[in-house]
Design a protein around this nucleic acid. Sequence first.
DNA 1: GTGAAAGCGCTAACAT
DNA 2: ATGTTAGCGCTTTCAC
Lengths: 343, 343
Amino acid sequence: MKKKILIHDVANHLDVSIATVSLVLNGKAKEKRISDELAERVLRYVEEVGYKPNQLAKSLRTGKTNVIGLVVEDISNPFFATVAALIEQKALARGYHIIYCSTNDDAAKTRDLLSVFQARHVDGYILALPAGVEEEVRALVRSGKPLVLFDRLLPGLLTNAVVVDGASGMYDATRHLLGQGYTNIALVTARAGQLQMASRAQGYAQALRERGLPELVQEIAFPQVPEHILQEMETFFAAHPACHAVIFATNYLGVYGLEALGRLGRRIPAEMAVVSFDDNDLFRLYSPPITVVAQPMEAMAEESISVLLAALESPNTEGTGRMVQLQLAPQLVVRGSSLRLTS
Amino acid sequence: MKKKILIHDVANHLDVSIATVSLVLNGKAKEKRISDELAERVLRYVEEVGYKPNQLAKSLRTGKTNVIGLVVEDISNPFFATVAALIEQKALARGYHIIYCSTNDDAAKTRDLLSVFQARHVDGYILALPAGVEEEVRALVRSGKPLVLFDRLLPGLLTNAVVVDGASGMYDATRHLLGQGYTNIALVTARAGQLQMASRAQGYAQALRERGLPELVQEIAFPQVPEHILQEMETFFAAHPACHAVIFATNYLGVYGLEALGRLGRRIPAEMAVVSFDDNDLFRLYSPPITVVAQPMEAMAEESISVLLAALESPNTEGTGRMVQLQLAPQLVVRGSSLRLTS
DNA sequence: GTGAAAGCGCTAACAT
DNA sequence: ATGTTAGCGCTTTCAC
């Protein structure tokens, strides 16, 4: 049990006051006209004994924790895991740390998480939230803490946000399938009341409407036990034998969809053309490779953290600060799963 | 900018002292014989105005943060992402929060992270570390903070640990391939000096030794740019045309391996039988499905957090505490990728 | 049963 | 140029 060394000990040993040590450590030496020689001596000793200021005390005093709260739907989802890893890396490079939590799309859990983050005095928030927490987020904004919504907006909430234009992504995907000659195109989406799902569905609907074709939408309730999801999908596909093309609105739906189609023995793309939102290893390496609407994850991470840090470091502590709403373009990556075989 | 409510405000409003409020809030009301009526009144008002104690101040005072530092190799790796999600969930259920960071297998970055966690006074650590930080971890142990190594041990370090018996997993996998009639079995592993890699390689070697068969091991340096990894693999496979079975020592090697084999046009399992360590969606849904050595992720998460919390809540603050080393059994999941086609 | 007061370790305004 | 000191918000001992 090594005894923790304190600023007091450092000051004592060097025979200076703790204020001097503190000032040197916080880069205020010049400003306070502390001799370079002394400053150097302090730094050297601190390094030597490995003194690390107690961040709790520091934060309590300064009101700044250098911690960012990251709230995602599910950290084990490859999309969120990847974006989280990128955000972590970028935040670290700028001296910030991340506390993350998964909501599992549960509003009650999310409320708890937000309140815990608040109690821990995180400096700012990056949030991908479930529906139903608008009031809490509004309060958060009012509290003056910087925050950026990512992946999805919240209805009736005007704040910093970094999202992907799912409507145009889905529109492109649907047009692509239409271009391949498919006319009976299904959309499998999540029933979750999430705004980004609605906009994806809208892009799909618009492409069909332009051609006067009917929609065929299957909503899957989430979260749910995998076996049920698979069964819902199998039932759906079985009930629509005329449907030979399907778009999955998220990566996990796509994964379940492939499994369901596999169970039904449907050959891709011969018997069923497939497109999924989100890209991942599975889609890329599947046989055939799956056509996807890829989200720009690197850009989402970069923009989210940039917008947040800009707000964090802006001088206007009042709520008058500027607001940034970014909408990034996804990219349709055409692969074998959606190509009409030459007949 | 809503004004933050303090314990002081609560006490003032109720016309009691802050001590009373604090005691009630910390469940010491009975012990201190505070009237039920008063306690009830405090609780109700606290609830009403949504008072949340400042965790920084609380932690500074009590020395307890209720935060656990989780250090993994890469949070975007499905294995770590899944285990992290499980650990987070289990920790939350017990009132603890997680700060996580990825090491990217970089010893210097890891040293930084550990030191930051220390400065933030996390209550305990769950660690999957790169080689080269033994000294720091030893110091951490000496400092008396509970810690559990997971996924991998560190050479010469005796601490709490939850790992998987990679040797027996690989032994089983190799025996399985031998049983299918393969004799020229390659192992593709990561050159990283990690103990769990060594033990996996050893299981493979032992199975071959028992049959008097030669080893064929390819080490891939990590981390590295994807394109290089693919090329290294392709070169390796091209250089060993007699090799018709391969085992990948981790999930990411397996993913790259499938891509490399795909590029080379090798059919699985007809031209190359494939087994990978770790299971994931890709392996499960690939055509053919990939035989894997699956790690018990749920159990790893559960045991890691249990061991840590046990240490955290044990009364012996001295280093005399008990030490737990758990080795969990992985499970060979045989799928189509490793089955000899009936000829 | 309840309240006053002493810190936890640090920063920064104010003295000197 | 450097030292003194008053908090940051909370917990908890000890006196009433």
